[in-house]
Simulated assay, not measured.
Amino acid sequence: MHGANLGTLLRTADAVGACLAVPKLPWVPEALARGNTLRRPTCVHWTGDQLTWLARQRDTGTQVVGVELTDESVRLADLPAARRRTVVVLGHEQTGIPPGGLDLLDVAVEIPMVGTGSSLNVAVAGSLVLYRLSGLL
């Protein structure tokens, strides 16, 4: 993920009252600091091993929503607002969510497109889903 995408996602998460969960890779703290244009402290959770963290979240009753095109994906417009704690999983813009992550999803959501591109920028896709889940759209 490009560092600018993290700043965009951080601001979107703040706008809908959510937290951002990210792995503590060497470049991530600096990218977050550079992209954070908010005037107050932000809510960031450090995940460590992503699949282990995600499995723990699911085991505690958190709903796990992945932004991914699968045979069972629901359209973004059909995704209901979250009624319980929810984690949104965003995959790599080119390779998507890895198979181990797909196995942990409760629901996959697709964002329909009519143009010639095959996917949206990860920050744009994540922002759309966060707003939909928040009930603000």
Results as ranks from 00 to 15, higher is better:
85 R>E: 13
54 L>M: 06
78 D>H: 12
75 R>K: 08
72 E>D: 11
36 N>T: 15
59 D>G: 06
67 V>N: 04
36 N>S: 09
52 T>V: 10
39 R>F: 09
67 V>W: 00
77 A>M: 12
65 V>R: 00
75 R>W: 08
97 I>E: 02
60 T>A: 13
42 T>K: 06
72 E>F: 11
51 L>R: 14
80 P>H: 12
67 V>L: 09
87 V>R: 01
39 R>W: 14
62 T>S: 12
75 R>D: 15
92 H>P: 01
50 Q>F: 14
65 V>P: 00
58 R>L: 12
89 V>N: 01
79 L>F: 15
59 D>Y: 06
89 V>P: 00
90 L>G: 05
88 V>K: 00
46 W>A: 03
49 D>I: 04
50 Q>P: 08
79 L>N: 03
86 T>P: 09
96 G>E: 05
86 T>K: 07
56 R>S: 14
37 T>P: 06
84 R>Y: 11
56 R>T: 15
48 G>M: 15
88 V>L: 04
89 V>C: 00
48 G>W: 12
94 Q>D: 14
43 C>I: 13
58 R>G: 04
91 G>Y: 01
79 L>H: 04
63 Q>A: 13
47 T>Q: 08
44 V>K: 00
63 Q>S: 14
44 V>W: 03
89 V>S: 00
82 A>Y: 02
81 A>L: 09
37 T>Y: 04
95 T>W: 14
86 T>A: 11
89 V>G: 01
39 R>P: 06
48 G>R: 15
52 T>L: 15
79 L>I: 08
